[in-house]
Amino acid sequence: MGEKLLLQVEDLHTYFYTLQGVIKAIDGVNLCVREGEILGLVGESGCGKSVTALSILGLVPSPPGRVEGGRILFEGEDLLAKTPAEMRSIRGSRIAMIFQEPMSSLNPVFRIGDQMIEVIKLHKKVSTGSARIQALEMLHEVRMPDPEAVLAKYPFQLSGGMLQRVMIAIALSCEPSLLLADEPTTALDVTVQAQILNLMKDLIRKRNAAVLLITHALGVVAQTCDAVSVMYAGTVVESGSVESIFRSPAHPYTRGLMECIPDPSRKSDKLKIIPGTVPDPVNPPPGCRFHPRCYKATATCSQIRPDPVRVGPGHVVCCHYPEEG
């Protein structure tokens, strides 16, 4: 893992203009992904994880969505300043993405081979024959049984796990330096989840590529990632290495999330929860967005938005009263 920054998201704002009002889906997100690093982006549904990934790729559905501010620096270039054509040449080649639902993420009327070859030909400017050979190699690398036969199959003839392998094969076929993985195992059977995660990790390490792994499962983060950023209601509330965050979570929200993981050794009767619900994105609470649900909240929390505070090496938290140890 290098120390060089690959992706730097600074103060990103992405809003959706709806009839109900302006939804500030992302309201000041800061992220850093180093070369070769796997960064987990964690948070509850609707906190803006997926929109962050789509903003990076320039794929926020517009209308109603729009990136309203901030900078997205990728290998030193500001992606928000790119033309649509320049973004197209980056998508799929330098930054690739895989999605939550492998079953619906491939076009049902084209063969697997055609869909793989199309992308390889587009970015690598090679002949169909050589694109086919590369597609076969990729399928082999994602440990697909009988790759030759799979090329001729249609998506509906494969299982969810197999399709996610195909998605990974397509995503990595053009050697991206960054992979955005949006809940890649959520739709899969538990038995397959670990296989896919391990496969992804292996292939990424081999290529020295970086991953932004979006998930709501802390277990996945602990197993797969090097660093974590925790999102809450459109902002990143805490980030740091996996070790330091799991050992000493500093934000009350992060701590709450950890406590929600059931511990079989402590046979308490009830599962732990964080009281309250995710705030209304049209009218978010003032000050710290988490304060209505926070047991430590004071008057300060409801008025002033907390700035990032360093609580350890590379460990930053946005809280007026960070937890100790």
């Binding site: 790729l57 794929l59 197209r88 040449s89 980056i90 998508r91 799929g92 080649s93 690739a96 993405m97 999605f99 993420s105 491939l106 076009n107 199309e118 992308v119 587009l122 970015h123 998605m167 397509i170």
Partner: peptide, 9 residues
């Protein structure tokens, strides 16, 4: 969305 993410025109 996948096709767009793959950079297809």
């Amino acid at each position: 969305r996948t096709a767009r993410a793959n950079g297809l025109p």
